[in-house]
Structures are given as C-alpha cells and as structure tokens.
C-alpha cells in the first residue's frame, strides 16, 4: 500500500512539474540556480531526466528567418529549442545555393559548433559570403569532443 502511495506522490509531483510555467519564456533558469518547486526538485528531477532520455528528446528547430543585409547578403537566423534536460552540443554546416540551385563553394561551409542549455531556446545565425546566394541547405550533427 505504501509503495502505491509513494508512486502516486511521485506521479503527482511530475504532473505538477509539467504544469509549472516560467513567468517569462525569454528567461531560462538552470535548476542549480533556481528554487526547487513541487514539480522540480531533487526527488523528481532524476525521473524527469530519465523520461526525457527515454523519449529521446533533443533539438527541434522552430523558426527560420532570413533577410537581406543592406549590402545584399542573405542573413539567416535559426531558432530552436532543446527539449532535453541536459546540455546538447551539436554542429551545423551550411551550403549556399545560387538562383539556379547550384552550390556555391565557399570557405565558410564548415562545421560550426553550437551548445544549447537544457530545456532552453537556442538561436544561431549565419550569413552568406556571396551576394549570389539566394538559398541555403543546412545539415546538423552531434558534436564529438
């Protein structure tokens, strides 16, 4: 009976944690800095980490904005969110395409590292090195140390 009660308490805490909201979503406070809450504390955290790992949570790209600089270079900003609880390190590599869809070979097409805090938004930005670039292709991979 006591085992069921314990599980019920844990589930209750997890549910409460899922419902808790940061007041301003522009601000992300690491759990080692912020106060513990009913849903996010030393007891529930390992469960949340385990569930996140089980679900295979990671980076999701949510928004791609591109604009032309006053000089005519394509400037791109990517916004994403790290759904995992731990820090996610990844690399991206951009290929620039001209109006005919042909790849423009440049020295800036290299793997660039990015690090995203757990449960946080991540933004990275890159700019075309040529004015002929009108579009791009992006690959992402896990960063190996």
């Amino acid at each position: 009976m006591s085992r069921y009660l314990f599980l019920l308490i844990i589930m209750g805490m997890l549910l409460a944690g899922c419902g808790s909201q940061v007041e301003d979503d522009r601000v992300n406070v690491d759990h080692r800095v912020g106060s513990d809450s009913l849903g996010d504390n030393i007891i529930t955290r390992p469960f949340k980490y385990a569930i996140s790992a089980l679900l295979g949570q990671g980076i999701e790209i949510t928004e791609v904005n591109d604009t032309l600089t006053p000089e005519g270079f394509l400037d791109v900003q990517m916004k994403g969110v790290n759904k995992a609880y731990g820090v996610k390190q990844f690399e991206y590599r951009t290929e620039w395409l001209d109006a005919n869809g042909m790849v423009i070979p440049t020295k800036t097409s290299v793997w660039v590292p990015v690090s995203a805090m757990g449960k946080s938004e991540v933004t990275f930005r890159f700019i075309a090195p040529r004015k002929e670039a009108v579009d791009f292709r992006l690959n992402m991979r896990k960063k190996k140390n």
Binding site: T69, P70, E71, F73, D75, K107, T108, V110, W111, V112, P113, F126, I127, A128, P129
Partner: peptide
C-alpha cells in the same frame, strides 16, 4: 585544419555582417 576552418569562417561571418567592406 578544423580549428583554422572554424576561426576563418567566424572571421568572414563577422566581417560580412559588419558591413565594413561596403
């Protein structure tokens, strides 16, 4: 070479974005 590639790409990115060469 990966470090030089990364450093050069960061420099070029910053330089073009700054508009200083216009």
């Amino acid at each position: 070479y990966r470090d030089f590639d990364q450093a050069a790409a960061a420099m070029i990115d910053s330089l073009i974005r700054s508009g200083s060469l216009h």
